[in-house]
Every structure is written in C-alpha cells, then in structure tokens.
Amino acid sequence: MIKVAPSILSADYVNLQKDIEKVDQAGAEYLHIDVMDGTFVPNISYGPGFVKAIRPITKMTLDVHLMVEHPEHLLPLFIDAGADVIGVQVEATQHIHRALQIIKNGGAKAEVVINPGTPVAMIEPVLHMVDQVLVMTVNPGFGGQKFLPETVDKIAQLNAIKQKKGYDFDIEVDGGVNDKTVIDCYKAGATVAVAGSFVFDAADPAAQVKALKNATK
C-alpha cells in the first residue's frame, strides 16, 4: 500500500489547519509543501515561516519540495523550520551533492527531484546518499495538471537501480496523481504518492486519501 502525501498547494488557505487535520486523521503519512520562487518555476508560494507555522499542528512528515534556484542557500532555514524531508531539484543547482550533504548534516532526510524531461542518469551518482527520490509526473509549478504516462518508465528504472544496488530510498511521484494513475506508479515501484487537487478539490478529502491507499492494496 502506498504512502500518501497530500499537497497543500491545493488546500483551502483560509481553513488550512482544518484541511491538514482532515488528511492527518485519514491516515496520510506525509504533508507535501511546494516551495516556489517565481524563477525556477513561474509560480510563487511559501517560505520557511510557513513550514514553521505548520510544524506544531501535525505529526505528519513535512515533505518540503524546493522548486527554487540555488536551493543550498535556503536549506538551513527549512531545516530550522522543522522540515522532515527536503527535496532539491537536480536542475536547480550546480552542486547537487553538496546540497544533499547540507540536508543530511542538518538532520533532515534528503531527497533529489527530477523533472519529466530529465533522465534518471542525471541523478544516478547521488542515489547512494538519498532517502527519497521524487519523480515529477507533470511539469512543476502548478497544481491540477494531467499525469504524464511516459514518466512511469522512470519510476521503473529507479526501482531497478534500487534493487540492483541494494539502496533503501523511497520513490515519490507528484503530478496528476489520482486513484487510477497511482496504480501504474505503484506497480512500477513508487512508494509515496503526492496528490493535491485529487484530495483537496473533493468534498471529502479524507475519503480521497483512503481511495489512493485502497487502489494500491
């Protein structure tokens, strides 16, 4: 059964604590927080203060995805804010190894992220040091996009490397995930599913979390 990471990019900002409590009580393991700088992606979202404000209201794993240029400059701030997992886009830094080291040295779990157009080979040199790999299944920056089926092959490639080398990282997918698309991702080796609009645009977010889990039993 897949672990579920509701993305608060699609939550109700005015009633954010209520939305977080709904998915927490439904059994979601992670809370996915997309940090966007308006440069690496066109959109702008939250900063470390937002993560710090959420930390006291939930025991869910705070899964912070940095879609920002030069992420290494911001990593200490998000570590101090209480992020449990911090994801860095391989395309956003010339120093991916150093960025992952900073995260791990700060006591958080390190995640490397690849866009749909980025091959798995780009991150193979750092797979030995990560706790999680995030495969973007849409182009990053906006919620509500349609799942890109060609990204399933990348999940399978990552899983094959993981098995062959004896690595222990989680494989997370993000973008267009629903109770149908999650099945192929899970079969290919995904262990964590980010879902935004599928969960929070529904009348009953808790039921949507359970639907993702039931689809991957």
Rank of each mutant, 00 (worst) to 15 (best):
S7R: 08
V182Q: 10
K180M: 10
D37T: 13
F147Y: 13
D174L: 11
S197Q: 03
A207F: 05
V120I: 13
A193R: 00
Q101L: 14
D170L: 12
A160C: 03
I102G: 06
L66V: 14
A5P: 05
P76S: 11
K22T: 12
G176L: 02
P42Q: 11
V126Q: 04
I183E: 13
G141A: 08
A211S: 15
G189T: 02
P205T: 15
F198M: 02
R98V: 15
V177T: 10
D184K: 15
D201C: 13
A195I: 01
F78A: 00
I20W: 01
A193F: 00
C185A: 13
N15H: 15
A207C: 05
I171K: 09
A83T: 09
Y167I: 12
D201Y: 15
G87K: 04
F169C: 07
G27R: 10
P76W: 09
V138L: 03
H97I: 14
T137M: 08
D24V: 11
M1A: 15
M122C: 11
V51G: 05
Q145H: 12
I79S: 01
I103M: 06
K109Q: 10
D153E: 13
V85C: 06
T93C: 03
Y13D: 05
G189E: 05
I103Q: 02
Q132F: 05
D131C: 10
A203D: 10
L74D: 08
V113T: 10
V194L: 02
A99I: 10
V120R: 02
F200W: 01
K59D: 12
V194M: 01
A83K: 05
D63W: 00
A28I: 05
A206T: 00
G196C: 06
F147V: 02
V88T: 09
A110R: 04
K164F: 09
S197G: 06
V68R: 04
F78M: 01
Q132P: 00
K217W: 13
D84S: 15
D184R: 14
P205L: 11
A5E: 02
A203T: 14
G27P: 02
R98H: 15
P6T: 01
D179N: 14
A202P: 07
M129S: 13
D179L: 08
F147M: 05
K104A: 14
N115C: 08
G38M: 05
K154D: 01
S45I: 07
T118A: 08
V35S: 03
P125Y: 14
V64M: 04
L66I: 11
